Amino acid sequence: MLKSRLGYLGQRERVIAENVANSDTPGFKPKDLRGFTFEAALGPNGMRPAVSTTHTSAMHLSPPKRQISAQQRELRPQEAPDSDITLDGNAVSLEDQMLKMADAKMNYDAAIGFYQKSLGLLRMAAQKPR
């Protein structure tokens, strides 16, 4: 899950950097990624195994079928205009982009911290008792 979150945040930083790089391009509309969701991180099959079940009795319940769209599976940048639009049609607000970048960096740092803590716990569990 953390690997998926880190990948999402890294791609979001790239999209925001592209927005900043095109802040002087006439007619450019800024892009952003959809929010990171738990369901999208699980993928099309969720955490269920790829093995199907067989109903041996009419009393058995069937598992719910999950429909995850292609947009949730893939991280595609979508237009997300900022609050200001200049006369040349450029909709990038550097202030908004810097706020988005700071938010992405804080989330990235938090995810890295969780990852390092989990590795520390695994190392401690693998050590011989003293």
Rank of each mutant, 00 (worst) to 15 (best):
E74D: 10
N45S: 11
R123G: 12
Q116C: 08
R66T: 13
Q116T: 15
L87N: 08
G113V: 05
A70T: 05
F36P: 02
N19Y: 00
E74H: 07
V51E: 15
D84G: 07
Q67C: 09
V15F: 06
L33D: 05
D109C: 00
L61V: 09
E95Y: 08
G35L: 08
V92P: 03
P64W: 05
G43T: 00
L94Q: 09
E13M: 01
V15G: 05
A126Y: 06
Q116K: 15
V15M: 06
H55N: 14
K100I: 08
T56P: 08
L2D: 00
D109F: 02
A102S: 14
G10V: 04
T25M: 04
R14S: 07
I16V: 13
A91Q: 03
M106F: 11
F36K: 04
A126C: 06
Y108E: 10
L121C: 09
Q78C: 05
R76G: 03
A91G: 01
L122T: 08
Y115L: 15
F36W: 00
S93Q: 03
A17D: 11
V15I: 12
A17T: 14
G35P: 06
T25D: 00
A21R: 04
H55G: 12
E79N: 06
V92N: 03
S83I: 12
P77V: 01
K100G: 07
Q71G: 03
K3S: 11
R5I: 10
A126L: 15
Y115V: 09
P44F: 03
A80C: 02
G7D: 15
E95H: 10
K100V: 07
A126N: 14
A70D: 09
N22V: 00
I85S: 10
L121T: 12
A50N: 14
K31V: 00
Q116L: 09
Y108L: 10
D82N: 13
G120F: 11
A111N: 05
K117E: 12
M98R: 14
L99C: 09
K31H: 08
G10A: 14
T25N: 04
S4T: 08
A80D: 04
G113M: 09
L119F: 15
G46C: 08
P26G: 01
L33R: 05
